[in-house]
Design a protein around this nucleic acid. Structure first.
Length: 646
RNA sequence: GGGGACGUAGCUCAGUUGGUUAGAGCGCUGCCCUGUCACGGCAGAGGUCGCGGGUUCGAGCCCCGUCGUCCCCGCCA
């Protein structure tokens, strides 16, 4: 064995003295087969009869502890780690090879499993009762010193992790995440198939429909100047599958949206997409709840059989100030009724507007200084928004306001001060948000604006105090997961910029039948409710769906109301309008984000932890380095020319 | 498009008021070690302080610009 510095050009250039410190002679695998996985070995596998039965493990060197004539290798595969002992007296050749082994070398070990002696067991390891005494060791491959060690719990920065994703993915946590993801996806498939759903694939190369998100485009070589688009969702295809009579469709489908990213948004992501004919919302809810229970079950969590709670969009806004309420936090309460006319006068609070209160658990334990800091923080958060707040604990110290404080406390005690099974005193209440007089122009006297702004503050403060109050601590039981359905979304949203009505969901969503019959669809767009619904878990939107329009006349009316001429609608969706004319059954469905479900189940803070090869916030794949420029030749073939934008 | 945080050894980070030769832990290399399991001991290597410009006698530190990563707002039917 030649030992010395690697002299190859690459190492010389990089100055990496660490590469191949010892040039080792690598072994061939030959016909050797693995007999066990590292993480599976237990006392029951020990060769107690001394029959000499051997075990062969293969994997990566996790750690090496060299005691001279005795070397320990922690051998790792996806199942776990087993300690291998190399004793110079027992197996001198294997021992010599182990001297050359380094972390992340790939090795095969054959030997006899033995129980560790008294005091030698490691209770922190699943396999800590046993160790493999090596008779032979094969060095199947060496490894450069990795930029970070998969054996370490402390993880490096994301840039390095993403560049060397294959090393990052070796970490136990990541291995668990993807095993979990696989189990969850399988459980969902099994459930849906058992409910009579057919899995049908739809195209990736499809037609750009310039609604919603920006498309990723694919240029056509044979049709210069023409482009396919990657699907933002299989929406139209799944509706056409219903028109085609497939009755129940599902797909675990990749979707693509060219929008700015977040911790919970990737440019390509995976949806559990399904659609049924002759739908009642209850059927769709039961189906989604069914596969969610199956998915959680696959993660070892048994959810209750009770249907998820439901609330309307309006209720969500007035109680939580957001359309995806986190039910782990107490709701807001409208305290308008507790304010007498005199108090409103004294406090200069507008009689027409809501006065909202919410609790911050144990805020009463805060010191005076901390409380002051919180107060100025809230002021800063609101900025010059025309909102102000009252600190109830402060109100209690002022005789004028004592009745108000008592009234508020009484109302909150009734409705709010039991949280996570604990009772709080009114000292826990910090804030009551009131619209300040004199600056109504900023929010157009819109109560919704107040609800949403206070809702945002509620979330911010919850995050701030989350650790302190163990608000989001995971016990990994059903109690950690608060689901709900939000229904009756508005059909339209007013677009202040373009002065038009936009579809709040998508333009294939059916309005409430009542709102069609009553004529509201034409006369009072702002009041039209959609048969659209979201499923929300712990403040995260897991998915959304709707009952679709199945009548051509209704679909045409919706397109018109969105400011789309018949001609324009025909240009964009002609094929779909045609399809609607050939016997379209009522249909509806839903799509849920698989990545988000797995992220929550894994207790991860980012989708990147549950997507094997994710992209950065700027949509770059750091491992393969994509996107890249392409050759002039490729561009010419596609009849494309790049221009530099100023 | 906007706001914020970060960028110093392979990794995690420290670096005082701008002042001599930029440090620590881990990792890495060599030697020693038969019961370790985050092994230990001794010795050693390793730096374009993200990049570019400016101020200054002097810049890791101050200023301007730029690039990258992360978080948030806008955006995501």
């Amino acid at each position: 064995m030649w030992r010395g510095r690697c002299l190859c050009r690459r190492c010389a250039e990089q100055g990496q003295s660490s590469y191949n410190r010892n040039i080792v002679t690598l072994d061939f695998l030959g016909t050797l087969q693995r007999t066990h996985m590292c993480g599976d070995l237990r006392s029951s596998h020990v060769d107690s009869a001394n029959s000499g039965e051997t075990i062969t493990l293969m994997g990566w060197v996790n750690r090496r502890r060299d005691h001279g004539n005795l070397i320990f290798l922690d051998l790792r595969d996806r199942s776990g780690i087993t300690q291998v002992v190399l004793d110079k007296e027992i197996a001198p050749e294997a021992h010599a090879k182990a001297e050359a082994a380094r972390p992340e070398y790939v090795v095969a070990v054959t030997g006899v499993l033995r129980a560790r002696g008294e005091g030698l067991a490691n209770p922190n390891m699943a396999t800590g009762e046993v160790e493999l005494v090596a008779h032979s060791l094969l060095l199947l491959n060496d490894a450069k010193t990795p930029p970070f060690s998969p054996a370490e719990d402390a993880i490096g920065n994301e840039e390095v992790r993403l560049k060397y994703r294959y090393i990052d993915l070796r970490r136990t946590e990541m291995q668990h995440n993807f095993a979990l993801r696989s189990r969850v996806a399988m459980a969902i498939r099994n459930y849906l198939v058992s409910q009579g759903f057919l899995e049908i694939e739809t195209p990736f190369m499809t037609r750009s429909t310039p609604e919603g998100a920006r498309d990723y485009l694919v240029p056509s070589r044979v049709h210069p100047g023409h482009f396919y688009a990657l699907p933002q969702s299989p929406q139209i295809f799944k509706q056409i599958l219903m028109i085609s009579g497939f009755d129940r469709y599902f797909q675990i489908a990749r979707c693509f949206r060219d929008e700015d990213l977040r911790a919970d948004r990737q440019p390509e992501f995976t949806q559990i997409d399904l659609e049924i004919t002759f739908p009642q919302m209850a059927t769709i809810f039961a189906t989604a709840e069914g596969f969610l229970r199956a998915a959680f079950n696959a993660a070892g969590i048994t959810l209750s059989d009770q249907p998820f709670i439901q609330m309307t969009y309006d209720q969500a806004i007035t109680r939580y100030g957001i359309d995806k309420p986190d039910m782990r936090l107490p709701a807001m309460v409208d305290l308008s009724a507790t304010l007498t006319a005199e108090l409103r006068e004294t406090l200069k609070i507008d009689a027409a507007l809501p006065v909202l209160g919410f609790t911050i658990p144990r805020v009463g334990e805060m010191s005076g200084t901390a409380r002051k800091a919180l107060v100025s923080e809230i002021r800063a958060t609101f900025g010059d928004t025309g909102l102000d707040f009252l600190d109830v604990a402060r109100l209690r110290t002022n005789e004028t306001f004592l009745p108000l404080a008592e009234a508020i406390a009484a109302k909150l005690t009734a409705e709010q001060l039991v949280f996570n099974g604990e009772n709080f005193t009114t000292e826990d209440l910090a804030v009551v948000i009131t619209p300040k007089p004199g600056t109504p122009a900023m929010w157009n006297y819109d109560p919704q604006w107040i609800y949403k702004r206070v809702g945002a503050l509620r979330l911010e403060l919850a995050k701030k105090f989350a650790d302190k109050h163990k608000l989001f601590e995971q016990t990994h039981t059903a109690a950690d997961f608060k689901f709900l359905w939000v229904t009756d979304f508005p059909m339209y949203e007013w677009n202040e910029e373009s002065k038009t009505w936009d579809a709040a969901h998508h333009p294939f969503t059916s309005p409430h039948e009542d709102d069609i019959i009553s004529g509201r669809l034409v006369n009072d767009k702002g009041a039209v409710r959609a048969l659209a619904y979201d499923v929300v878990l712990n403040g995260t939107e897991l998915g959304s769906g709707s009952i679709r329009i199945h009548r051509k006349d209704v679909q045409a009316e919706i397109f018109r109301s969105l400011g789309m001429s018949d001609e324009e609608a025909h240009n964009r969706f002609g094929f779909f309008l045609d399809a609607l004319e050939y016997g379209t059954p009522p249909h509806g469905g839903i799509a849920l984000g698989l990545d988000r479900i797995v992220m929550i189940l894994a207790g991860a803070q980012s989708l990147r932890e549950v997507i094997a090869f994710p992209k950065t916030a700027k949509a770059i794949d750091l491992m393969v380095d994509a996107p890249t420029p392409v050759s002039e030749q490729q561009l010419r073939e596609l009849s494309l020319k790049t221009v530099t934008r100023s």
